[in-house]
Nucleic acid binder design. Sequence first.
DNA 1: GTCGGGCAGACGTCGGATGAATCTATAGTG
DNA 2: CACTATAGATTCATCCGACGTCTGCCCGAC
Lengths: 231, 231
Amino acid sequence: MALTDDAIARIRGMISSGELPPGARLPPEPQLAAQMGLSRSGVREAVKVLESARVLDVRRGDGTYVTSLAPRLLLEGLGVAVELLRDDTLLEVMEVRRMLEPVATGLAALRMTDTELDELDRILQDMRAAADDAEKLIQFDTAFHHTVVATTGNETLTSLLDGLSGRTLRARVWRGLIEANAAHKTIDEHQAIYLALRSRDQLLAQATALMHVNTSEAWLRTVLAAQAGDA
Amino acid sequence: MALTDDAIARIRGMISSGELPPGARLPPEPQLAAQMGLSRSGVREAVKVLESARVLDVRRGDGTYVTSLAPRLLLEGLGVAVELLRDDTLLEVMEVRRMLEPVATGLAALRMTDTELDELDRILQDMRAAADDAEKLIQFDTAFHHTVVATTGNETLTSLLDGLSGRTLRARVWRGLIEANAAHKTIDEHQAIYLALRSRDQLLAQATALMHVNTSEAWLRTVLAAQAGDA
DNA sequence: GTCGGGCAGACGTCGGATGAATCTATAGTG
DNA sequence: CACTATAGATTCATCCGACGTCTGCCCGAC
């Protein structure tokens, strides 16, 4: 399998070499095909791959362009990859979050502005109001952690952690939490993180975040074990 | 753009739902096309995307199969994504490594066996012997860190760090190091990490790793600044 | 039992044709 | 002159059919 993969590599090469900078427009498919010595079908497959990787942006009726290549785009694929991981490797993902999220939260404690703290407070209230609505809880939980990590100003870090905290993963944890009536306890953990951030206490923020991830990991274990029992 | 992307989503859905477990064989392309209500071309594009994401394994003359879905496969794409990041975001990547690698190295200190330590020692000697051969230095440097992180037993973590330590990134750092005659100093840092691991000292391992990443980051800054000056 | 050939199945690549969306330039209108 | 609407050109989306090539497997020969 060479032709199509060659085309992928060559287009990628043109981008990383700077020949095709962000925003640049590629030649029309027929022309690109001629240029690379393969049929239009092959080019389309190559372009589709790069489009799915958020490297190219294909606009019907217009043309094909190089995206901004921003980390948030290129690292988006991490999320879909994590969604496909098998159950026994989800604990590995959790372990990575456990290493990364506390440090990130600690860093956020140093940089967070009052405005951002207020937003966190708002999300926290939303969570309490959501009660037992799993769907909403997951949504606010996601927003909470995203907001915290985003204030580090490191987009790569944010995208990475977003990807590692996939929707399915969160859903499973919260299902376990709600079924065991432990949702309120987890919301309290968020509160603790919030208070640590509010007081700009890096070490405390780190500690509260670690506790929180640890709780999540524990519930994930429970859910996975119960599921294994069923099967 | 719905048909092909729908197909991608549906195949992915069949996999994550367990309908297509790892190793399973997909129907032939024409049949799959009929089943999903689109042409073979569309199916081929969808399959190609999933193949590039290491979700499917297409064997010419044989058929299409679901891969093992192991983290090392699914997270492989992270590496190619990082290779396409623009220069100004590489420092973000470095910052993430700075958060992750010390913790991982500290963890490795607790789990590393004598055999693995001996292998590290061998790599270290290779590095010293490589002298000013940038190519080899990069190769041994990669091997060193990979070996350390791999002993944590966390394949997800290993793949993640491998991806974040892309070849291009390493190449740039080492280029700066060699040009400034600072290669030996960096090799000494590896030695320090090795000694910390040998004595199973988690905190010291963490500290030496942090210092090392910090050095790399500093050199990356230098190289990027020099490059910006050229342009 | 082993080796080799041949056959069927499956992916790889190609070329052309048609439809749909977008952009642009032009002509018309107030 | 400014704005709008229409027509055409450009480009991607999708489909269809054909042929080449590789792989796996069965079966016969030795």
